[in-house]
């Protein structure tokens, strides 16, 4: 449970930092660049803030969810294996 909580904390920190960090970045872009210049800053054909917020953030959320699931799958499999070994061992009299 402790390791699960640690992973959840890490995921939530990555989630929060990306959302708030990017908006702070966009805020400073807005303050320091004219609208005209903001349109010139592009990534993948889109103004940088459109791409970062509208396309990168949902993609980042998907990546975080995939990482969480991979970790949970590994974690539950290893816990299950531990439980099975214990049960098999107990019945057959093997030492754990």
């Amino acid at each position: 449970m402790k390791s699960e909580t640690r992973v959840i904390k890490l995921i939530l920190i990555s989630w929060l930092t990306a959302i708030v960090g990017l908006q702070v970045y966009v805020y400073f872009l807005e303050r320091n660049y004219s609208e005209l210049l903001l349109n010139e800053l592009t990534i993948f054909n889109l103004p940088v803030h459109f791409w970062l917020t509208g396309q990168f953030l949902p993609l980042w959320f998907i990546i975080l969810c995939v990482l969480f699931n991979l970790w949970m799958d590994r974690h539950t499999t290893s816990s299950l294996e531990g439980t099975l070994r214990f049960r098999v061992g107990a019945r057959s009299g093997e030492k754990q």
């Binding site: 805020y27 872009l29 807005e30 005209l36 349109n39 592009t42 054909n45 889109l46 459109f50």
Partner: peptide, 23 residues
């Protein structure tokens, strides 16, 4: 989803309309 970036530029260059006012 990527192609519409050109429309943002066209709006600005042809009609003086800026989409890049973030907030």
């Amino acid at each position: 989803q990527f192609g519409y970036g050109a429309a943002i530029i066209d709006l600005q260059q042809q009609f003086g309309f800026c989409w890049s006012d973030p907030f």
